[in-house]
Design a protein around this nucleic acid. Structure first.
Lengths: 132, 132
DNA sequence: CTCATCTACAACCATTTGGTTGTACGTTAG
DNA sequence: CTAACGTACAACCAAATGGTTGTAGATGAG
């Protein structure tokens, strides 16, 4: 499986595209109804070309596709791409859960563990003694 | 609840922070084990200051927090923030599902009528007839 | 105390980004 | 056909980004 090639630069582009409020709004509009670029442009306080660029960013990120209808160009959100981005975040959450598991395990196997010591306890007393 | 204030500029920062491979890697490292900034810096082919800036971006986005331990500064991923970003994507997927539902409904309620004329019909037949 | 380490931050530079305007092209309406 | 519309794209600009180096402040080790 050479699927790994996609996921690095592609995730870059996807998150970068999502990091702008205007582009997220375009996504929201187009996920509900396909919209032509000019109709989108009318909805924002910027030039047509600016909106066109935003759509281009979303398209390069694979988040939307364009489809001709007459002289218009309809923009459509790709829900698969959205889910792909979500998976990247899911992985982070999974890793966190693994970490918590490891910590719980360490605590459990502590022999004379007297009480519910928070996991940070070992790295949390900076020996803030009488210095200063 | 004025929770809406957060979600706009904050989501901007979060996705922007996630839009860089180095920063995502930092997140992955720190979600598994807290790591000092200098230890992180040693892991990447760039200067200490550059890594420091990346951490600052992640911190402003609320994705990590820093905790002093002696002369080190430990970086820790905030799993809640990751989940918040995920929710933003979940909303998009939800909207898509609603759209599909609406479409299915339209299809379902179409009897065997030859010309189902919804209000949108006027902008929907491009009259791609025998012209050209 | 002194020294090495870790961090913070300013100044600077090249590149990218997000916006503008202007021009050109394809398609549909009359 | 011409005119109007929707789009594409180039050129340009200010601001942000991602990197560098250099300097200075805290903190722990010896």
């Amino acid at each position: 499986m050479v699927v790994d090639e996609l996921t690095d630069a592609a995730v870059d582009r996807a998150f970068h595209a999502l990091g702008d409020a205007t582009r997220r709004d375009i996504l929201r509009r187009c996920v509900q109804d396909d919209s032509s670029v000019s109709r989108l442009a009318a909805a924002y306080p910027m030039s047509f070309a600016a909106v066109q660029k935003h759509v281009a960013v979303l398209e390069r990120a694979g988040l939307v596709t364009k489809h001709r209808r007459g002289r218009e160009q309809l923009v459509r959100t790709d829900p698969d791409a959205v889910q792909r981005a979500r998976q990247a975040l899911d992985q982070l959450e999974l890793a966190w859960r693994e970490r918590v598991d490891r910590m719980s395990q360490l605590l459990a196997q502590t022999p004379d563990a007297p009480g519910p010591d928070p996991p940070e306890s070992m790295e949390n007393h900076p020996r803030r003694g009488p210095n200063r």
